Simulated assay, not measured.
Amino acid sequence: MQKIKTALLSYGMSGKVFHAPFLAIHPGFELLGSWERSKKLIQEDYPEVRSYPTLEAVLDDDIDLVIVNTPVETHFEYAKKVLLAGKHAIVEKAFTTTVAEALELAALAKEKGLKLAVFQNRRWDSDFKTVQQVVSDQVLGEIVEAEFHFDRYNPNLSAKTHKETANSGAGILKDLGPHLIDQALSLFGLPQSVFADIRITRTHSLVDDYIDILLYYPDVRVRLKAGFFVREAIPSYVIHGKKGSFLKVRGDVQEDDLKLAKKPNLDTWGKEPKTKEGILHTEINNDVLIEKIPTLQGNYYDFFDGVYNSISNDTPEPVTAQDGVHVMQIIEAAIQSNNQKKVIDL
């Protein structure tokens, strides 16, 4: 199996929790190291890898793939340098800060014949995979309404300065928003128009921390919400069709397990407790039924496996640059809608 030599552009929570553990267990990747600016931590976990002092040192090395997992406002600059250096790239969400930047990166990757994937790992959450399966099975009939939430209760500001300083990449719209938007688009495609309410609710916050986005489709309405003042959460996924409904709480265990330094695997990883199973209430063959739906297994490994196949076998990326462009189109439309207090056509 061809080894894809890979480097990270930071080894904070993103590199340590979401990327390195999966690169380490996938036989097709070789983790060479990470760019580390001040704290030198990666060799504590992976003694055999390198700590690069600069981005240039990364790009000058014999590396096939670079993961751009730095603050959002740096994504475009760093990803462009990576592509110009002839390396494949994975870029964290939000892909960029503007649609124009996203389009430029997509065009550059195509011109260079390189793979460019967006790290939308929440497509491989156990809860969303189950929602996806229920919709695919058409047990709800024609879908008329969906509502996705990414709610938390956390009135305190983040200790991460880049998340709380007013800049082009900060705020919940470009932090949690891309997860919700990407999930909605992967289920329903691009909407016709967008309406959004974006607010600041935490004391002393300088960045948006509440979003309510409505996506308009010809026959479906999709609402996406995220905020920090939800102490008692409602189901994170609510789907209503002409025959029935499906309700599912957010239950994916992967992030919590990764933060506890548990090692991912291909067998038992990403399995939710049965207490988090979703409720299906629908009508099938004239019989009304209410039942719990077993949750599918989640595994972010599948994203990295998709990237491996994309580079090795020239298949499409698991989340393409065009997918990233579409998410940025919704984000820009949401900002415009909030500023103008009106529906924005795409």
Results as ranks from 00 to 15, higher is better:
232 E>F: 14
260 L>A: 15
179 H>P: 00
258 L>P: 00
199 R>C: 07
198 I>Y: 01
242 K>G: 07
228 F>G: 08
205 S>P: 04
244 G>I: 02
238 V>C: 09
207 V>G: 00
249 V>S: 13
240 H>F: 08
182 D>P: 06
210 Y>R: 03
260 L>G: 10
222 V>I: 09
181 I>M: 04
177 G>N: 05
232 E>V: 13
259 K>S: 07
178 P>N: 07
214 L>E: 12
232 E>Y: 14
180 L>A: 01
242 K>A: 13
184 A>G: 06
201 T>M: 08
179 H>L: 02
253 V>A: 06
245 S>T: 15
262 K>A: 09
199 R>Y: 06
248 K>M: 13
259 K>R: 15
227 G>P: 02
214 L>T: 15
195 F>N: 07
259 K>D: 10
231 R>V: 10
240 H>T: 15
210 Y>V: 03
192 Q>C: 08
185 L>A: 08
221 R>K: 14
233 A>F: 08
224 L>I: 09
185 L>C: 08
253 V>F: 04
219 D>F: 13
179 H>V: 04
244 G>F: 00
199 R>N: 11
183 Q>M: 14
190 L>N: 14
250 R>I: 09
228 F>T: 07
211 I>C: 01
234 I>H: 13
239 I>V: 12
187 L>F: 06
206 L>C: 09
238 V>M: 13
204 H>S: 13
225 K>D: 04
182 D>N: 13
248 K>E: 09
208 D>S: 10
210 Y>S: 05
183 Q>H: 06
249 V>N: 13
206 L>P: 04
208 D>I: 00
211 I>H: 00
209 D>H: 02
203 T>D: 14
193 S>E: 07
185 L>D: 05
228 F>Q: 08
197 D>Y: 06
228 F>E: 06
219 D>I: 11
223 R>S: 07
246 F>P: 01
187 L>S: 06
244 G>S: 02
262 K>D: 09
245 S>D: 11
241 G>I: 01
214 L>V: 15
183 Q>V: 05
195 F>C: 09
